Simulated scan of single mutants.
Amino acid sequence: MSITDRLAELGVTLPDAPAPAANYVPFVVVGNLVYVSGQISMDASGLICGKLGENMDVETGAAAARCCAINLLAQVKAACGGDIERLERVVKLTGFVNSTADFSEQPKVINGASDFMVEALGDAGRHSRSAVSAAALPLGVAVEIEGIFQIR
């Protein structure tokens, strides 16, 4: 089954790739790898802000991470000239969670992105990963995730 078909089954339409907010590019292609800059938690309604362990629970944080994953795939699609079917596999995700000093469930939050990648891509969505805490993230968002992807 194609990636487009899997996304449709999940009820997901990839948005236009978000534009960078400062002096950097949204992705860099080196050989068959795409390095995608950090995608902050946002959906069609806007930014998803909050601090885990203070005013946001793990389930809501995981949903924010899922939105980051969708935006990562939108960037990969843009890097592939609009052809998401060129995506071969997710290599690595690095997730940053805006959380209090005593919050320790960052992996559960970033699971929102990891689980989505596997749902959308099957085994090609399985990846290496880091999930770390941050005292603050840009614009007060709850989650930011960057990724490395292999393409054809």
Results as ranks from 00 to 15, higher is better:
residue 129 R to V: 02
residue 132 V to F: 07
residue 45 S to C: 06
residue 59 E to D: 14
residue 30 V to H: 10
residue 66 R to D: 10
residue 37 S to G: 03
residue 94 T to F: 09
residue 13 T to G: 04
residue 121 L to V: 08
residue 71 N to M: 05
residue 14 L to E: 06
residue 18 P to H: 06
residue 126 R to M: 13
residue 97 V to P: 01
residue 103 F to N: 10
residue 81 G to M: 10
residue 121 L to F: 04
residue 89 R to Q: 04
residue 111 N to I: 01
residue 63 A to H: 12
residue 35 Y to L: 07
residue 15 P to L: 11
residue 92 K to H: 15
residue 13 T to C: 02
residue 68 C to R: 00
residue 53 G to D: 04
residue 51 K to R: 15
residue 62 A to S: 15
residue 18 P to C: 06
residue 45 S to F: 06
residue 122 G to S: 01
residue 119 E to F: 03
residue 115 D to C: 11
residue 35 Y to P: 03
residue 99 S to F: 05
residue 89 R to C: 05
residue 38 G to C: 10
residue 116 F to E: 02
residue 50 G to Y: 06
residue 45 S to Q: 13
residue 77 K to I: 01
residue 91 V to Y: 05
residue 40 I to W: 05
residue 74 A to H: 00
residue 45 S to T: 12
residue 104 S to W: 03
residue 27 F to D: 01
residue 71 N to G: 00
residue 103 F to E: 12
residue 14 L to V: 11
residue 98 N to V: 05
residue 50 G to W: 08
residue 59 E to Y: 11
residue 63 A to L: 14
residue 55 N to L: 05
residue 94 T to V: 13
residue 80 C to G: 00
residue 76 V to I: 12
residue 109 V to H: 06
residue 77 K to V: 01
residue 49 C to T: 15
residue 41 S to I: 03
residue 78 A to Y: 06
residue 44 A to V: 04
residue 52 L to H: 02
residue 129 R to T: 07
residue 128 S to M: 14
residue 54 E to D: 15
residue 29 V to F: 07
residue 46 G to L: 01
residue 99 S to N: 09
residue 43 D to L: 03
residue 45 S to A: 15
residue 90 V to E: 10
residue 111 N to M: 08
residue 52 L to S: 04
residue 25 V to C: 09
residue 81 G to F: 08
residue 113 A to R: 00
residue 91 V to P: 06
residue 45 S to R: 13
residue 109 V to N: 05
residue 54 E to S: 14
residue 34 V to I: 05
residue 12 V to N: 06
residue 51 K to H: 05
residue 71 N to D: 12
residue 126 R to Q: 12
residue 88 E to S: 14
residue 18 P to Y: 04
residue 37 S to N: 06
residue 77 K to Y: 02
residue 124 A to L: 08
residue 17 A to S: 14
residue 112 G to N: 04
residue 25 V to P: 07
residue 85 E to W: 03
residue 22 A to I: 11
residue 67 C to H: 11
residue 60 T to G: 07
residue 56 M to G: 10
residue 125 G to Q: 01
residue 40 I to H: 09
residue 25 V to R: 15
residue 44 A to Y: 02
residue 58 V to T: 15
residue 30 V to P: 01
residue 96 F to S: 14
residue 104 S to K: 12
residue 29 V to S: 09
residue 100 T to K: 00
residue 61 G to L: 13
residue 121 L to T: 07
residue 34 V to K: 02
residue 74 A to I: 01
